[in-house]
Design a protein around this nucleic acid. Structure first.
Length: 489
DNA sequence: CGAGTTTGACCTGCGC
DNA sequence: GCGCAGGTCAAACTCG
């Protein structure tokens, strides 16, 4: 709720009175949205001068509005009364010149306000277009959300590797990375002994194009680094270990898990301890859940989804940078910084990894209420880095999360919000992510509503929760559940 | 007995 | 073409 409010405040302030009003009569109105709306209203009050600005800027209007509301009307009355007398000519001329000066001043002020309004409108339009890109229409629900994100990620990959991607034969390089691909293998697998090669051959052609279309988003990964003594983190989902490998350069084995909450769920995660510090556990999620999630898992889903949205939208750098260059965007991002006290959490993108990966590093102790560090460099900073958090940790990791929670959220835990907050906080530390942030915010606020609505059927799931660990909370409001995953690099 | 884990073998992509 | 490393499979094993 808090975070939504903050988001709402941010957006509302950013776009001032021009921000489209949410439908307050919405049937799916949620408490969160309530607060958001209230913030909208309050924020509009704050900038209530805009409606005045938006009025026609003709002189007559100015006269009518400004003169009537100031002591000038008295002067006008005086002027009128005095114009009838001859000895008042000089004084009248003086007053007229004063009035003209005053009008000029107001006119100039009007110009400034108009210019400001234009900038805000521009910023709003820009942001809105990206919001539309980042979120689906409410009708289609999660699947459409994923589809759109796939499109975005496709763009992202094209941006990153324009020639390679264009020249690539569908289903060659990327073929095996798709979780759906794995699912297809599972579905088409006959007897366990059937050679995989033959199976691949039999299903290859039809699926390859399909896979190719869907691959980019699935390749997006979200990794979380956090200190955890447990072997894995409790993210609310049920996982089954299907393999373990010794990774090169790391004495600690890498474990492979598959989501078992639903048959054929393509989500997988890798868990590996850091070689330098074995107390640090890196969890990497990949794929989208194809089933409802319990609240505790929803937290992770929201986190990863937001991170993935940021990651993917952040890859489309051109628009983002353009947006960043606008003054309103700048002020918005700085406001965001102020709203994210835990700037020690760092999010980084990795373009060198085989997949676009966002990493949240939760291993640094939070530094609440500290001003954010000066914005570093831009997207060129790609490299292995910290990630989003996994929600899934056992107690120890949940404790970690607790430390990251906002102080005023000390009541019943609301993991999803906190985690998304954490994610945004992490990303907010780097201006490179500001644009991605906008997408995420829209996802959480505007799009978040959509997701909430879209995932109403998933709420059913929320009853299930069951064995998920400490972060589970039945009172937690449902969150966006598009579940991108984490991955460790 | 079913669900989950372990572990060696296998498959695939990639770099040389 | 070969070797390496990452990822996956599935039989064997463990546990409740």
């Amino acid at each position: 709720m808090e975070e939504h409010s903050q988001d709402g405040r941010e957006i509302a302030f950013l776009h001032s009175g021009d921000f489209p009003q949410r439908d307050s009569t919405s049937k799916d109105h949620q408490p969160n949205e309530c607060s958001v709306e209230q913030h909208h209203k309050s924020s509009i009050k704050e900038v209530d001068f805009f409606p005045v600005k938006s009025q026609p800027y003709d002189l007559g209007h100015m006269r009518a509005t400004t003169v009537g509301s100031s002591g000038l009307n008295d002067e006008l009355v005086l002027m009128n009364s005095r114009t009838s007398s001859d000895d008042g000519d000089d004084k009248t001329k003086t007053q007229i010149s004063r009035l003209r000066l005053e009008l000029e001043r107001l006119h100039e002020e009007n110009h400034k306000l108009k210019h400001l309004l234009n900038e805000i409108s521009e910023s709003y339009n820009d942001l809105q277009s990206r919001v539309l890109l980042a979120r689906p229409t409410q009708v289609e629900g999660l699947q459409q959300h994923e589809d759109i994100l796939q499109v975005i990620s496709s763009k992202a990959l094209e941006d990153r590797k324009p020639t390679d991607m264009n020249n690539e034969v569908p289903g060659t390089t990327l073929k095996r990375r798709s979780p759906d691909d794995v699912d297809d293998r599972d579905l088409h697998r006959g007897s366990p002994k059937t050679p995989r090669l033959e199976q691949n051959k039999s299903t290859n052609h039809d699926e390859q194009q399909n896979h190719h279309d869907q691959l980019p988003f699935r390749k997006a990964r979200v990794s979380v680094r956090a200190r955890c003594d447990a072997t894995t983190v409790n993210d609310g989902c049920q996982w089954r270990k299907y393999g373990q490998k010794m990774a090169k350069g790391n004495p600690c084995p890498r474990a492979y898990y598959r989501c078992t909450m639903a048959v054929g769920c393509p989500v997988r995660k890798q868990v590996q301890r850091c070689a330098e510090d074995t107390t640090i556990l890196t969890t990497t999620y990949e794929g989208n859940h194809n089933h409802p999630l319990p609240p505790s898992a929803t937290a992770m889903a929201a986190t990863t989804s937001a991170a993935a949205a940021m990651l993917l939208s952040g890859s489309t750098t051109s628009n983002l940078q353009q947006t960043l260059s606008t003054p309103s965007a700048m002020s918005s991002s700085s406001s965001l910084y102020q709203n994210f006290p835990y700037t020690s959490t760092i999010a980084t993108l990795s373009a060198t990894a085989p997949f676009p990966t966002i990493t949240l590093d939760l291993t640094n102790p939070p530094r609440p209420l500290q001003p954010p560090p000066p914005p570093p460099h831009f997207m060129s900073q790609y490299g292995p880095g910290p990630y989003l958090t996994n929600a899934n940790q056992t107690r120890s990791i949940n404790d970690n999360y607790q430390q990251l929670l906002l102080p005023n959220l000390s009541g019943p835990q609301v993991p999803p919000r906190d985690m998304v907050e954490t994610v945004r906080a992490a990303i907010a530390t780097d201006p490179n992510f500001t644009a991605a942030l906008a997408a995420a915010i829209s996802n959480i606020i505007g799009g978040g509503n959509d997701n909430i609505n879209n995932n109403n059927n998933n709420n059913e799931n929320n009853k299930v929760d069951a064995k998920s660990g400490g972060s589970s909370n039945g009172d937690s409001p449902p969150l966006p559940q598009s579940c991108t995953t984490f991955s460790t690099t």
